[in-house]
């Protein structure tokens, strides 16, 4: 299968006046065409940061560090100027549905006006033609054309999220980063949006990066799952390798799954991972998870565990798993 994306040794630091927040440290992964790759992990582990890095738009004071490589459809985008990125990468090839975007629609403009502006920023187009396109996209996400005349407050959460998704697809990108696209919605609407995303993916032959902290939801959408902890990849495997009978390999993934409440199976206790993710200005030595790990050994405290392929397609960064 062809790769749409190759990320190698990606480092993104936020240079705050307290020091550099090492939000992504040596992150490498690939994404195949037509594939959905999930990014999961606790709050603050670097999921959103990974997403914005792919659009080359870190929020200040963030910077993609020297030596990071991102290949999009075979093309090295780290070498491109900001102008080139804007012209033919950002929104054109890669787009992103931002965390909480549906609450950021401008309250005083109609949906039609907001969508029109976005479109005309990128495409020279007659108003009539643009409106026709907008209606077409609204239809694709299951909304009637009248929605154009409505204001955000007149729409439900699910409708707003559909609009945000339609806008992200306008310019026909190949890769879409979806950052917690259903977190603010209830289960029924969430399931509707997930179905919609699956259909759109087929229609447009898209590749997705699907970010969420909900491991159950990730299991329903992602072909492969990348578990992040404190700015690093802890484990990356196929849906089967993470959720299958054998279970995940990394102690962090194991614990995350045990903290996931199940509906159809009654669990007596729900476990959790004591403590909190570390300060990324001065992260723990060795394995960044070692202060919270139930399987910690002496070596873990000193040496950084490498991300190794322990079975075909299954990468794990844990000393316990190195035989």
């Amino acid at each position: 299968m062809d790769k749409i994306l190759e990320v190698k040794n990606l480092r993104l630091y936020y240079h705050t006046n307290k020091g550099a927040v090492k939000a992504l440290d040596d992150v490498s992964f690939d994404l195949y065409k037509g594939e959905t790759l999930g990014l999961v992990g606790e709050s603050g582990c670097g999921k959103t940061t990974t997403g914005v890095a792919l659009l080359r738009m870190p929020s200040p004071p963030g910077r993609i560090e020297e030596g990071s490589q991102i290949f999009l459809d075979g093309r090295d985008i780290m070498g491109l100027s900001e102008k080139q990125i804007r012209k033919d990468v950002r929104w054109e090839e890669v787009s992103m549905v931002f965390q909480g975007a549906m609450n950021c629609l401008t309250p005083v403009y109609t949906i039609g006006k907001q969508m029109l502006e976005t479109l005309q920023e990128h495409r020279e187009m007659e108003k009539k033609q643009a409106e026709k396109l907008i209606k077409e996209y609204l239809g694709l996400v299951g909304l009637p054309p009248e929605v154009m005349n409505r204001y955000p407050h007149e729409l439900s959460g699910g409708m707003k999220q559909r609009i945000v998704i339609a806008t992200a697809l306008f310019l026909k990108p190949k890769l879409v980063v979806l950052d917690e696209p259903t977190t603010a919605l209830d289960v029924i609407v969430q399931a509707q949006i997930i179905n919609l995303l699956k259909k759109l993916k087929k229609t447009f032959d898209l590749s997705f990066i699907f970010i969420t902290h909900d491991l159950s939801l990730e299991a329903e959408v992602s072909d492969r799952v990348c578990v992040m902890y404190a700015g690093k990849i802890a484990e990356l495997g196929t849906n089967q390798q993470i959720y299958g009978k054998q279970g995940p390999m990394h102690p962090y993934t194991e614990k995350l799954l045990l903290a996931t409440p199940l509906l159809k199976k009654k669990v007596e206790t729900l476990s959790f991972i004591p403590g909190a993710p570390p300060d990324l200005i001065d992260p723990p030595s060795g394995c960044r998870f070692h202060p919270r790990c139930h399987k910690v050994m002496d070596k873990c405290k000193e040496e950084i565990p490498p991300l190794l392929e322990l079975e075909p397609g299954h990468m794990v960064a844990c000393w316990r798993c190195v035989k």
Binding site: S216, A219, E220, V221, Q240, L257
Partner: peptide, 10 residues
Amino acid sequence: AVPEPETGMV
């Protein structure tokens, strides 16, 4: 509608 952490749904 509730998702479960199971395989085979993708």
